[in-house]
């Protein structure tokens, strides 16, 4: 565990927990894409199948359970909570996410380390995570502005990806270990998707103005 990895995990954790707590406290999920949240729930469930087969560390196990639990709780809130579900921007959240699921699954069937159930699902979760933010970015784009919650959420997720890349570089230099290319290429794609958003986030922060994305 190095400082970049820890910072990455913490910003990831903050992004998910802040989202869940704010949805619950304000009873509103306006500006948040249910499709992205469902994709993340699928990502965590399919990636952490090794909870049943391998023990890495207590930290690892607890974090996995927190990620699975909190992502399912967010989906539950947005879908079924009597009050919260009314604020869901259903008509703006129309990204055809089955395309992302299909492409990721086919890619995982073709590109994986070993042809076992666990390895194929692991690769699938890596590919899916890389593109899972797209429905959220499209929703932000369509609504034309971002409230604090959605903006902070995407900001922390982007920070998490940036720290993970630093973590890989650090591990390469200090542990003489290279990150598996499946994670590496997917991670770079994922981080690139945030770059555009970060640009506008930075501009709005600099001007102390509400975040406005171009139509």
């Amino acid at each position: 565990m190095n400082i970049f990895r820890l910072a990455g995990d913490m910003t990831h954790l903050i992004s998910v927990l802040v989202l869940l707590l704010k949805i619950y406290a304000t009873k509103s999920c306006s500006g948040i894409s249910l499709k992205t949240q469902e994709l993340y729930a699928i990502v965590f469930v399919t990636r952490y199948l090794d909870l049943f087969t391998d023990f890495i560390s207590l930290y690892n196990t607890v974090m996995k359970l927190v990620f699975i639990g909190s992502s399912l709780a967010i989906v539950w809130c947005m879908r079924y909570h009597r009050v919260v579900r009314r604020s869901y921007d259903r008509e703006l959240d129309t990204f055809r996410y089955w395309i992302l699921l299909g492409v990721s699954f086919i890619l995982a069937l073709v590109l994986h380390e070993k042809f076992t159930l666990q390895e194929v699902f692991w690769a699938f979760s890596i590919y899916l995570e890389a593109v899972a933010i797209l429905p959220q970015l499209v929703l932000l784009q369509r609504s034309g502005n971002v409230d604090n919650l959605a903006g902070q959420y995407v900001f922390f997720l982007g920070a998490y990806r940036a720290f993970y890349i630093l973590n890989w570089i650090y591990r390469y230099l200090t542990e003489q270990r290279f990150t598996r290319w499946i994670s590496c290429v997917s991670g770079l794609v994922q981080t690139a998707l945030y770059a555009d958003f970060f640009y506008y986030y930075f501009i709005s922060w600099k001007n102390n103005a509400k975040l406005q994305l171009p139509a």
């Binding site: 560390s57 974090m63 990620f67 993970y164 591990r171 003489q176 270990r177 990150t179 499946i182």
Partner: peptide, 10 residues
Amino acid sequence: PKPAPSKDEL
């Protein structure tokens, strides 16, 4: 270098 055990990352 050896491959990093990617499964130890989240």
